[in-house]
């Protein structure tokens, strides 16, 4: 075991960890925001939208994230030369970066997995509670905001921590599209120093620590939610 390289690469590693966390937070937040309507329309309809949401979840959950990432980055990228105005558009600085595609792919993936779980959450809220809310004269949107969503969210909360950890474990895939998150940094160290195992072990250890922190955060959140059993 040889760890001489560690001080030299420490700043790069810290930046990689930071990037991993940024990828995780952005993709989970946006993914959750999309998951709510995706879960909801599958319960409430209208039917065409429900089918669409169902199809989206099946397609995303049925294909490897790695292929999705490559499809988005290289597949779309190979179309750019045939659409010249894209390069002149104000979006180009964003579309140029692998980061955008990484976030996009991770967000879509989280939305699909979490959408399926939110569907279960919405379905599990007892009918009586929604009927009671209606009897109080709440509008459909108020019911959603005050009763249905909070109840559904509380039901899925215990699984959410596991889902976020799953998402953390998906982030290293974006290293294959030039994003230097922590696994990418590990690969760079491997390439520069010709040490194979030490950088990989360090990266593995970093993921174990991040998982531990996420588990703690969700334990804390769950304790904040009042529960009567």
């Amino acid at each position: 075991m040889n760890w001489d390289w560690l001080p030299q690469y420490a700043p790069l590693l810290l930046h990689g960890i930071w990037l991993t966390i940024v990828l995780l937070v952005i993709s989970c937040s946006f993914g959750m925001a999309f998951a709510i309507p995706i879960g909801l329309v599958q319960v409430t309809g209208p039917l065409p939208l429900a089918w669409l949401a169902k199809g989206f979840c099946t397609a995303i959950r049925g294909t490897p994230l790695l292929v999705q990432i490559w499809l988005l980055y290289y597949g779309l990228g190979s179309l750019f030369p045939s659409i010249p105005w894209i390069r002149d558009s104000f979006m180009w600085p964003v579309l140029r970066e692998g980061f955008f595609y990484g976030v996009l792919a991770l967000t879509i993936s989280f939305a699909a997995y979490e959408g399926e779980i939110m569907r279960g959450g919405f379905m599990s809220v007892p009918k009586g509670e929604l009927e009671a809310a209606r009897a109080f004269g709440m509008s459909p949107f108020t019911i959603l905001r005050r009763i249905w969503f909070p109840r559904a969210f509380r039901l899925v909360l215990p699984t959410l921590g596991g889902e976020v950890i799953g998402q953390l474990k998906a982030t290293p895939l974006v290293a294959t599209i030039t994003i230097m998150e922590v696994f990418g940094v590990g690969s760079k160290i491997r390439q520069d120093t010709y040490h194979v195992y030490e950088p990989l072990l360090l990266v593995a250890l970093i993921y174990v620590c991040l998982t531990f922190v996420i588990t703690r955060i969700f334990l804390w959140i769950e304790r904040q939610v009042p529960q009567k059993r």
């Binding site: 750019f80 180009w92 970066e97 692998g98």
Partner: peptide, 28 residues
């Protein structure tokens, strides 16, 4: 590239030469 251009330029590493060429063609 790290040694001679690393100070001023951004270096992106690709797993295959094809993909680097592809990104050059795509303007990335």
């Amino acid at each position: 590239v790290d040694k001679y251009f690393g100070a001023g330029s951004t270096v992106k590493t690709y797993q295959t030469q094809d993909e680097a060429n592809q990104d050059l063609a795509a303007g990335r």
